[in-house]
Every structure is written in C-alpha cells, then in structure tokens.
Simulated assay, not measured.
Amino acid sequence: MRDELIELGDLFRAYQQRTEPDLALLADLHERKARAFTTWADVSGIMSLRLEARRAEQAATAARFQHQQRTGGIADSDGPAVSRLLTAPTQGDHARSVLAYVADHSPLPGPEARLLVLMLTLRTAHTGTGNLVGQDLTALGLTDPEDLVEKLTGCGWLTLPGTAGDLLASRPENPTPITVPSLVPHEDKAGPFTFGKKMRPKLSGWAQKIVSDKKLRKAKATAGTRLLALTLATQTDASGRLGPGGQGIALNTLAAWVPVDSGELRHLVDQLTAADWLTDAAVTDDQLTGQLTERVLPLTCPLRA
C-alpha cells in the first residue's frame, strides 16, 4: 500500500508538470487514488480516508465528463443527444425527491440560486462533500456565478477552501473541494435522501448533461430555462410525454420547483419550444402539455452515467 501511494504521488506530480492536460489520464489517476484510499480505509477504519476516496471518485467523474466534452463524446457530437429521460422509475423518484428538498431548503430566492443549489445538492448529496470545477458553474447560464457563490458562502450554506474566484478558475486537473454543511451526515440523524452512493453520481451526471445540452447552449438559455428543462425531464414517462399518464403538468405544480411567476414560466416554456427542446408544447387552462424530443441514450451508458 505504501509503495502504491508513493507511486501515485509521483504520478500526480508528473501530471502537474505537463504542458497540456490529458483528462482521460487524470481520470484514471483519480480512480486509482480512490481504490487505494478505499483499501487503506478498509484496513485502518479511518473515516477521513474513506471521504478522501469519495472525493477522488468525484474528481474522476468530473475529469471524465470534461474529457468527453472536449473530445465531442457527448452532446457536442453529431450523434444521438444526451437522454432526456430517466430509465427506471426509482431514478425519477430520487430526482424528484432532490427537487422537492431543494424547493424547501434553498437559502436564496430566484431561479438562478435554485438551479445552482440543486446542482450542488446533487453533487454532494451523500457525504455533504464533493468536487467542482469552474466549467460546472459556467455551463449553468448564470448571470454572475461568482456573486452567487459568494452569497451561498456568505450565508453559510456552502463552504470552500478559497474564494469564489478560485472555484471559477479551477480546472478538472485540480478541482475545488466543496462542502454543504447541512448535508454532512450525522450518526444520530439520517440524511434527507434514500438513494445509495452509486445512484448519486448517475443522477448528478445526468442532470449536468441536461442543463448543458447542446440545444440549450445554442439558444444561450438562461438559468431559469435550464432549471425548467431539468424539472420537466424528471416529469416524463418512457415515451417522453409530460406528467402522469402523459396528460401534462399544472403550471402551479411547476411553479413550486421553478420559482418564477406564471407569465415568466410561460416565457420559459416558449424558449424551450423555440430551441426544439420541447415539442408540441401548449399552455391551456393552466396545464402544460407536450413531449420532450426523443434522441435517447441509456442513463447507464458507459462514461455517460
């Protein structure tokens, strides 16, 4: 074990000396680090080592995702788009449970804060900790991500080792560790979510792909539009129809998850329709009907989970 850790240290130092990043290699290094720290934690029983292993797993996922973005392996490619649909009923249930939790516990008002809090909650849901890079924030369509992060740290909802500017400048080869204190588990209190540690990165990765979907980027969608897109994606059946039985979703239901007034909500729906992200959409009698355009990949597709 000692030899493995020494070798890993040497490999990470060598990586830092590279003139060009190799995110696939970096993801492999983080995965190897996660395995080593998990083994060390199993032998020693030290909880901090297990948390470090989880951070390494999250860093590997982030690096792998960034690698695919840069190489065109996901939504930037000409092939099928990222799945808008969750492929199992329990996945949808878990995604909606996070939406409901954030609706009740978001520390700041407005759709931009709601989207950022939602994405950070998904990233840290199991341990209260996770890793983040600047592009994770700039992909959300936020008006001023640095100011919003400062407000979240200022109210104590989020803690960082440095400044909001440092977080925005961080890259996949050196992600920023983040902590959401309210989600850190306590021995005498169960966490707010019931899904397991393997489900969390699947939900988080799927949500990140939804909000950074190629069509939304092309349309320069706002954070509110992206939040609505993600919300609708959790409310679809296997055929892509919205709402229970494909009958649509009441606007007042959506307003609980997307904190804008009804007029703005209709405008966001129009933006999704104009971007060809939502098809056959209409708002009548306070009911949203329509379906998501379907170019579906499984949630569990390798390197896309």
Rank of each mutant, 00 (worst) to 15 (best):
A103T: 03
D93W: 14
C155D: 14
A88K: 12
V117R: 05
D78Q: 14
P80M: 08
H126S: 10
D104N: 13
G79D: 11
Q91S: 15
T90H: 15
S97K: 13
G128T: 10
M119F: 03
G73T: 02
L108S: 06
L132Y: 04
R171H: 11
L120A: 01
L152H: 09
T71Y: 10
V117K: 01
T127V: 01
R96C: 06
D93S: 10
P89E: 11
T87A: 01
R171D: 09
L86I: 13
A81K: 10
A169G: 00
L137A: 09
V102C: 07
K151Q: 15
L168S: 04
L152V: 13
A169M: 05
D104S: 12
N131K: 09
H126G: 11
I74E: 12
A81T: 09
A88T: 12
T163A: 08
P172M: 08
G165S: 12
K151L: 12
E150D: 11
G141T: 11
D147Y: 14
T159K: 12
T153N: 06
E150K: 02
D93K: 14
D166F: 07
V149H: 11
E146G: 06
S170Y: 04
L132Q: 06
D78S: 13
A169Q: 06
A125C: 14
A88V: 13
V102Y: 02
V82P: 08
R171W: 08
I74T: 07
H105E: 11
T127S: 15
P80F: 05
D166Y: 09
